[in-house]
């Protein structure tokens, strides 16, 4: 039995906006499924249909074998959700929030244990209205973990988290998955999906444009990566020297950066080649270009969403990717 089965779902909103077009999607039991796509692609609409927040115009969906509409309450009893664009109850404490989820799911757990797992137990008795976005995100994750759900649905889970928080979030997701929980999570940040997902679906303009394992997706594009070296001033000899390094497939100059597409070369040798030719290396960053390209290839024209990356590197990489085009 698939954990999630979306069958031919179309959603048209009033005013003729088609958010989803004949979407078919299957998430297997026990896997971590990354639902990728730029903002506005229809990720949240899909999740909202799974939770019966909105009703499909055509098609149907099942969650854990139950109809997402008719059995919505039973579905939500066994699912933990971290929604997007939510708002906490400002006057209630963190503990009261988690207690609310415990009361609702009738699990009899202790709020402290859950708050502990997400690392905000010290803020348990403060009003959630005073929480930072990152703390609120942890709090709602704690609510999602109540009752040891069979399926976790996480909509942009690392929103508002710093890199450490995002890593912690991934650790918790992995931990839950190890305990047998299926995880379905949406993101517009590739690194995060890449780090933990078994399979990925890419959504663009309401249609699923690709669905495969992470490895296969990357294999389809090639295994190269991009090294971006920021120098004081790029010189022609330096660029030539890099071009001569074995395993380098392409070199270009972008402002004060030398952008090197590597198929199979030593980064150290590239950096050495640059420095030996009179350039001062100020900074460098590696990026698995294949994934970015893959993403861009499939979602051409809709990459604005990428700018909202949470980690500085992600944002920087994106800008560079775009600048190269």
């Amino acid at each position: 039995m698939p954990a999630i089965d979306v069958d031919g779902v179309t959603k048209r909103f009033g005013g003729g906006v088609t958010a989803l077009q004949d979407l078919n999607l299957t998430v297997k039991e026990g896997e971590i499924y990354g639902f990728l796509g730029p903002n506005g692609a229809g990720k949240s609409t899909t999740i909202n249909i799974l939770l019966d927040f909105i009703r499909p115009t055509e098609g149907s969906a099942t969650v854990l074998g139950m109809d997402a509409q008719a059995d919505s309450k039973a579905v939500r009893r066994r699912v933990g959700v971290l929604p997007d664009a939510y708002h906490v109850y400002e006057r209630l404490t963190g503990r009261q929030h988690v207690q609310f989820a415990i009361d609702s799911k009738e699990t009899g757990e202790r709020p402290e244990d859950l708050l502990n797992r997400v690392g905000i137990s010290e803020a348990a008795d403060r009003k959630a209205g005073g929480y930072s976005k990152g703390m609120a995100q942890r709090l709602v994750l704690a609510m999602a973990l109540v009752g040891d759900p069979d399926l976790l649905i996480l909509d942009e889970p690392s929103t508002g988290l710093d890199p450490n928080g995002a890593r912690e979030m991934r650790r918790i997701i992995q931990q839950e998955n190890d305990r047998g929980t299926t995880v379905f999570f949406s993101s517009h940040i590739l690194e995060q999906v890449e780090a933990i997902c078994d399979r990925v679906g890419i959504l663009h303009n309401g249609e699923l444009v690709a669905e495969d394992s992470m490895e296969n997706l990357r294999a389809n594009i090639g295994s190269g990566s991009t090294l971006t070296v920021t120098v004081d001033e790029p010189t022609e000899p330096a660029v030539e020297a890099v071009r001569d390094v074995p395993g380098v497939s392409e070199v270009s100059v972008d402002g004060t950066s030398i952008v090197v597409v590597i198929s199979d070369a030593s980064k150290t040798r590239i950096l050495e080649a640059i420095e030996e030719n009179g350039c001062e290396v100020r900074d460098f960053a590696t990026e698995k270009a294949s994934l970015e390209e893959l993403f861009a290839t499939y979602t051409e024209g809709g990459r604005d969403g990428l700018r909202n990356g949470t980690t500085p590197t992600a944002t920087q990489d994106t800008t560079e990717t775009e600048a190269r085009r």
Partner: peptide, 17 residues
């Protein structure tokens, strides 16, 4: 309006509840 209904309705509450 605020968005807190998403917490309310991701938990097992029907709209009638």
């Amino acid at each position: 309006e605020s968005g807190s209904h998403k917490l309310l309705l991701t938990l097992p509450h029907s709209r009638a509840d």
